[in-house]
Design a protein around this nucleic acid. Sequence first.
DNA 1: TTGTGGTGT
Length: 1111
Amino acid sequence: MPGPHLREGYNSKARQSTAGSRKKGKLKKVSRSEAEKPADCNAAIITTKTKEEKEIERREKLLQELASQSESKWTSKKKKRLEKYIDKKIKKEERLVIFDKLVKTQASLSTSVLQSSSTLGTGKASTFQERQEKDEDIFVKKSLLGQSGKRKRHQDIFDVQNAEGEEDLADGLLSGQAEEDTEFQNNANEDYIKAEVGVIQGPPSLPPKKSTQSAPSVGSALQRNANGGVTAPKVRPKSKGKYSVQRGWGTILPPSAASESDTSFDSSDSESVPSNDERGEELDSESEEDIVDGSTRQPQPLPLKKKSLGFKEWAVKQLGIAKGYELSPNNATEEAESVTEPPKKKRKLEGQGSKHEIRGPLGENLELPSTTFAKRFLDSSALPTSKSYIKVIDVKRPPEVEEARVLLPIVTEEQPIMEAIMLNPVVIICGETGSGKTTQVPQFLFEAGFGSAGSENPGMIGITQPRRVAAVSMAARVGHELSLTSSRVSYQIRYDATVSPSTSIKFMTDGVLLRELATDFLLTKYSVIIVDEAHERSINTDILIGVLSRIIKLRENMWQEGKENIKPLRLIIMSATLRVSDFAENKTLFTTPPPVINVAARQHPVTIHFSRRTYPDYVTQAIKKTTKIHTRLPPGGILIFLTGQAEIAGVCRKLEAKFGRKAISEKQKRRGQGQPRRDNEDEDVWPQPDPKQSVNFAQAAMEAEDVDLGQDNLAFDVDGNMDGDADSEALESDDEDQLDTELGLDEDSNTPMHIVPLYSLLPSDKQMRVFQPPPPDCRLVVVSTNIAETSLTIPGIRYVVDCGRAKERHYDVTNGIQSFQVSWIAKASAAQRAGRAGRTGPGHCYRLYSSALFEHHFEKFSIPEIQRMPIEGVVLQMKSMHIDTVINFPFPTPPDHYALQKSERILTYLGALAPAPGTSSVITKKEGQITDLGRAMALFPLSPRFSRMLVSGQQHGCLPYVICIVSALSVGDPFIYEDAIGRGDDMDIPASSGPDLIKSQAKEERQQLRKAFFQSQHVHSSLGKCTSDLFKLLSVVGAYEYAGGGQKFCAEHFVRPKAMEEIHKLRAQISSIVHSNFPTTDPGFTPKLSPPSDHQVAAKHCADGLRLTIV
DNA sequence: TTGTGGTGT
């Protein structure tokens, strides 16, 4: 079904093989030299040689063993090679032990304050800069000519960048939002008028001041809007009988057709009363086209500085105040440290001051260079009390917290960090996982008075996280560390919050803050915002940083004008990597490069091991590598990175069969009874090698060795792997492995594995199993997707097996198709994965790809989300925040130009943006003011297409059902599919828990399950007579709600409880948004929702058609 | 009767 959200089929196999072969071809030349590289590097580590004689003995023994096992004759050449190989192997094993010893003694790492980012690469702001220059030019002209009455609105913040502009803006913003403003009042009236003639009322930010005496039902408004705005004009919604399926009810016409033939509010209303949108349009065209209309704006007087204090002076004052407080004895060390490090700080500040002489990032006067302050600060002569920044708020931490805290590297850096924060509106802090930045920096701020009433910075400390769990758990942890209740240290996520009026520190997901911007653009409740995990570059984070960079300027300006007790806002960007040039050097974003503080992490060293060759079948390789680690290396958890659910399930099954608790005890039992080791023990576990190879395994091994240790046998590699015949299958495997088998080195381990799968779709309780310690004498083996790379940190991992790939969503801008593809990860991701081995002690990372591939083929960083995802939703949200010319927005990395255009076009088709008046269907960048329909759509936490469905779903009382469908579509497919049944990880069905008998039992169970599965499928498909997947969805959602939810229902109906719960919550949320914004509309949020009538089913077919038409 | 990494309002 070709819906926009239904992605192209998963075709990883085909892709993998092509990718594999392509890469192989490329690598042909380098793989030889690369093969030796890791060994050489590592060889240098060895400083001691254990007794040589012993080694020789051992080698000889191995050789003999091997020779006796195989009857083949040894050529001297082969013998030599084998010898060399064994040599290497033994060395390697020793090295591991030695290295472990070495690193255990390693002391903690130091921290440094980097000079602001000049070495970090180049920014990507050229286009913005050009734009900026142009805008400045325009603005100067405008101010010269004078401007008339129309107030500027938020969008201008992003259009105009020079200082006068900002003043003007701040003014406009204030009057527009906070004060009583006639213009805005008028807008409200306009909206009211529109409402009367059948238009959706605007969002709450446009206050519908007067009570509507005869407000039409919003239902009809929506309906008319839907018809009038974007569809053919001749629709009669009230028509009877066969609904207007054929009449193009569901078809969207291009904007030209709509605007030409259309007689609905959108054009007719705006003729009589100029709408917001049109005014915006005017302003826009002014700025874009250099048309300066003297009559549209009043002359702007240069703003008065009501306070003579600049930001720096203010900061100094605060510091001075801080210094008046007592110096607690344990701060003495910090103080000493800061004194011994003056040059560093000085350099940092000098760098800043000298680059930008006149105006700083806040438009503040920098004529007093910051170095002067720095000198004063450091000399401590200019200030009455001494050198140290001192805490304001007393906190009581539990003793064990204090203890643990001392070990965190960031704690010793409190002073430089706080000084940087005090002196700069924007600070970037880099610190890898484990540095404690997320928990400690908010505490530093809190202790310095941020977030406490009566201090200089009474506003809350806001910390954004990209994930809900992180927000919740961090709030809990910081609360615990500060011994404060959850009402002081709170969190807010989509469906849950602990915020109270007394909240000082607030953790939230970035989406929450972004939503907050819609109601309070200045974020007046906050005195500092920390954007955490900025390196992940999620869309929300990027947008937030862009918006915040402007809010900071506004707040600064308003504060200077003494408006409404507004204090400046500070921004702290925290990143785990040093890839901060997109933030630090982006002049559009921050005109003064913010200082970058680098904090070392308390991370143990991790040794990286590359494979000699890169195999396409990384799943098999992962199993083999894990087997080797398990049988040979000291205790410690193993974390395996794979790409998807199916792979993980397969690997888990195979490992379980070989090293699971049951498999081990079976084996031991058999041995105990003196039974010989079964030859086919590995059956059903490993890919079956060709029988003839198991006969002459040694021979195969030697040939394999030829390939890998020899010099020029690469052709075999390429051909063999590409053909995929039985021969190559066996030979593909690692030479070491083959030899090990022969040398008897892979003796079975008697240690069972505790194997735990981990991926996002897994039920939460199953996910939690990775945090439980494994049973005694077991080795923890976690088989995970990317989720373990960023979202979860698993304790006790010592070995990481990295397949080097990840499944990623790709979005083709030209055709709008999204697909999932397995592709190579970036170097940064590989580093992140490796780092997971060093959390609890020194670790090892085994990469299932060659160092050459890594070096030459891996990207340095992965592409930011905003450049590989559809951005209609983002654009709509920005437009609803009055950011009309999205192209001028200071993105850290701007999205593709075409993608922007495309998303505006889609939004125009959806009716969320107005087509440029009088223009044809050709879309130019100038068009695109948000319509009232767009505003209504932006209210919903949904992608624009889904919000649009809600609007269309008004008719025939279908809204309750459409809400169900939209919720389900938005959350994602809840169904568990057939092949997942009985796999044992989604449901509580024992996986193959032993040999044949149990296997057959499981088989029977599986068959029964399958039967139940198809029955359930049939039941749900029958709604709408098997005509639509959407009805199947609706059916199962309806049934779930009717049954009141619950695990039991999910098990019986083969749906994921997590998804169903989320759907339920989203349904509630959407319903409540509809209810509070459109009081006359019934969202039908009732648990016992009765099934739709045939009539409604037919109507929904239309909605379905609509959804499909808009691509 | 055929399928999907991770997030978020």
